[in-house]
């Protein structure tokens, strides 16, 4: 259960980014989470609800976009998405592919009210 640590890091970075714009209030933070990031979205949302409660006003929203696994075939170089466990290449059926993405844990943007 490291989602609490991840949620507090998202909040911390989100607040720093919002503070770059004087007087702005943090409304939402958008993150992209790869299916292989080892982070559970529900646990993260739950941790966020607990951590993001401000002493006054409304808590900022957490928007999560789940990113699929992206692969490149080592045989024919075809790039393709698959479920988290990986799949054979749709073009040449090779089993042999390299991971291109799907393990990211990325803070995409913050939404602020000015």
């Amino acid at each position: 259960m490291h989602e609490v640590g991840i949620a507090s890091e998202i909040l911390r970075v989100g607040q720093i980014e919002a503070a770059r714009r004087p007087g702005a209030r943090l409304i939402a933070v958008s993150v992209r989470i790869g299916v292989l990031a080892g982070v559970d979205s529900d646990a993260l949302r739950f941790a966020w609800e607990v951590l993001s409660q401000p002493t006054e006003g409304v808590a900022p929203r957490l928007d999560i976009e789940v990113v699929p696994r992206r692969n490149r075939c080592e045989v024919c170089s075809m790039e393709f998405f698959s479920d988290m466990l990986g799949e054979d290449c749709p073009a040449c059926s090779s089993r042999n592919s390299r991971l291109l993405g799907g393990d990211e844990l990325q803070l995409a943007s913050v939404e602020v009210e000015e």
Partner: peptide, 15 residues
Amino acid sequence: MTTVVPVEKKVLHEN
């Protein structure tokens, strides 16, 4: 007025 500010940083960028 609300504005979306692109950040594009790893959440664990400090680590």
